[in-house]
Design a protein around this nucleic acid. Structure first.
Ligand SMILES: [Zn+2]
Ligand SMILES: [Zn+2]
Ligand SMILES: [Zn+2]
Ligand SMILES: [Zn+2]
Lengths: 152, 152
DNA sequence: TAATAAATGAAAATTATTTTCATCTATCGT
DNA sequence: ACGATAGATGAAAATAATTTTCATTTATTA
């Protein structure tokens, strides 16, 4: 089952966060797309509608949302961070288009078995794993590039 | 089959790079450990033996080594980069100790099959994948912490 | 040994992110 | 609705990683 805009607002409030217009705007921006966005991109997107937010607040809001588990952070190849709304509640991974930045969630992670074998073989106590796939989405394969800049 | 110090020197030379003392020192530092290191850590390590290198040169040497395929770059959780000598020539992944930073190479990547299924399911043309595991190595589980700072 | 393309280092520039601190405001109890 | 207050915001400065610039040095090759 997926999170949605209302879920996030009420859960945030429940966790003691205030529902400011700035936070609503950031959540709304994340909710409006399946693309990942950097803090700066979110700032630009939000600033189109209201000049009423600063980049610092974007950073702080993303921190809060990440701590509360409502967004996924991508470690971009550039060394920067990309964020997107966390839609599946359960453990999952990301398939990211290198051209337009769209993200498809990959569920049914089958890596626990591999983890177990690695653990037995090395003696490591496993904490976590990361797994990301990059590729070209069908639309970009057809040349229908939707965004201007090259992502990732 | 694994790369070693001499392989790298001669291959670098073959690719047109000059073998400067600074480059030798960086390669030597990477070769001397199975831990990953940040550029700054490499700088500090190399600087103990000779005051004859600057941090900029570390960055430039790491760029060259990465382009030439002789080192692996880890996207650390902190958003910084960690580097280590690339020992297996073939496609592989990394199991990293969160405490001491030691890295174990995981060969026999079995993710191509998963990639194929994802591709069929989403229509994406797959370019690449990343897969990293973090955990606690046997020595750190026993409290034998070798390095001072917490890595990753 | 001389020529030269490449490499180096110091310093400045760039960029992402975080911190500081004074001001503002969402929320809650009255 | 009103006032108190903890928490949130924004401007500006601070931090930190990385890259660029440019004058000087050096590994390589003939
Ligand atoms: Zn996700
Ligand atoms: Zn997984
Ligand atoms: Zn490796
Ligand atoms: Zn793989």
């Amino acid at each position: 089952m997926d999170y949605n805009y209302k879920d996030i607002l009420s859960a945030l409030k429940h966790e003691g966060y205030k529902l400011t217009p700035q936070r609503r705007a950031v959540i709304q921006a994340l909710h409006s797309t399946y693309n990942h966005m950097t803090p700066l991109e979110i700032f630009e997107k939000v600033s189109i509608r209201s000049r009423n937010i600063s980049l610092v607040t974007i950073y702080r809001t993303l921190d809060a949302l990440e701590k509360a588990g409502f967004i996924c952070r991508l470690n971009l190849e550039t060394g920067r961070s990309g964020y997107l709304l966390r839609r599946p509640r359960s453990h999952h991974h990301h398939l990211v288009c290198s051209i337009c930045g769209v993200v498809v969630n990959i569920g049914n992670c089958e890596l626990e078995e591999l983890e177990k074998r690695v653990s037995e073989h090395t003696g490591f106590k496993i904490i976590s794993h990361t797994f990301d796939i990059s590729g070209i989405c069908p639309e970009c394969q057809n040349g229908k590039i939707k965004t201007s800049g090259v992502k990732i």
